[in-house]
């Protein structure tokens, strides 16, 4: 109860601070932005660059185009569309990460051979990768079911999500003390039993931080993937579309951005909730 109250207060407080910063800067900042040595270090504050918070919020209630659906509905639908890619990418990425971690823990050779590639995989810029994946996807089909653009987005989300899980879980699986491993050996426990009874439970403190990173990475991957591939239906697409109208309807693009941020928060919330539920069953002194 106390904990929940503090959480709600924290969320509200953060929102209030955000609004105050936004409006405060808008009130005192130079409308043309601050330029130092020829570089703009602070953004412009006029209504075209930084609409008032209430303008943005009221924009949610107005129709997207004259006579169309209200924008909150459009953004919500786009977020749900993107959520599918995020969710599947997160789960699949988590499983791939877990599998890689188990493999690397099991075989030193694999760890030595694979880990550099796992790390290398994350240094490839997403913007460069997205078109390649979209291109491959275009030539694939799942049985008779043709490859859909959102699947490419899912693959990118997965590609980013597997990494923190693989690295975090590898550390977690390697975390048991030698004495615990000797104990399992003394019971003549096999590799599988040792994994299930010792390594996996010992790695839960590493699992949830990894999952939180993976969730954030999946959202970023999906949204950026949609933006760079222009996938129809997702919130990333809305960001591009609305930003083209920035001169005539500056508040619009911010509604899409708030939608993307809310998506990230919702996914982080789900991970946090599951951690809370798992943690509640276990006392930690």
């Amino acid at each position: 109860m106390n904990r929940r109250g503090r959480l709600v207060l924290g969320v509200l407080g953060a929102a209030v601070v955000g609004v105050l910063l936004w409006e405060g800067y808008k009130a005192v900042g130079d409308p043309d932005g601050t330029v130092l040595f020829g570089t703009r270090v602070l953004p412009r504050t006029d209504d075209a660059a930084m609409p008032h918070v209430w303008t943005i919020l009221s924009r949610f209630g107005e129709p997207e185009l004259a006579g169309g659906h209200p924008i909150w509905l459009v953004v919500l639908q786009a977020c749900l569309f993107t959520l599918r890619s995020v969710a599947i990418g997160f789960v699949a990425g988590g499983l791939v990460g877990l599998l890689l971690a188990v493999l690397m823990q099991r075989l030193r050779v694999v760890e030595r051979g694979l880990l550099p590639y796992v790390i290398l995989s994350q240094t490839v810029p997403l913007i460069a990768l997205a078109p390649v994946i979209a291109g491959w996807g275009g030539r694939l089909s799942i049985g008779t079911y043709p490859w859909q653009p959102w699947m490419s987005v899912t693959v990118i989300a997965m590609y980013l999500a597997f990494f923190p899980v693989a690295v975090g879980m590898l550390r977690g699986l390697q975390s048991p003390a030698p004495i615990a491993e000797e104990l399992m050996r003394s019971y003549a426990a096999g590799w599988w039993q040792t994994l299930v009874k010792l390594r996996l439970p010992a790695s839960t403190p590493y699992l949830f931080p990894a999952l939180r990173l993976a969730a954030a990475a999946a959202v970023v991957g999906a949204v950026v993937g949609e933006i760079s591939m222009g996938t129809r239906g997702g919130v990333g697409r809305l960001v591009i579309e609305y930003s083209r109208e920035a001169t005539t309807d500056p508040a619009k693009v911010f509604t899409a951005m708030i939608g993307a941020a809310a998506l990230g928060l919702a996914v982080a919330g789900v991970v946090g909730l599951s951690e809370f539920l798992v943690g509640r069953r276990r006392v930690r002194a």
């Binding site: 003390a177 004495i179 615990a180 000797e182 104990l183 010792l198 439970p201 010992a202 839960t204 276990r282």
Partner: peptide, 9 residues
Amino acid sequence: FQQAGLFDW
């Protein structure tokens, strides 16, 4: 063992 080595979960 010399140390208890219990599983803390």
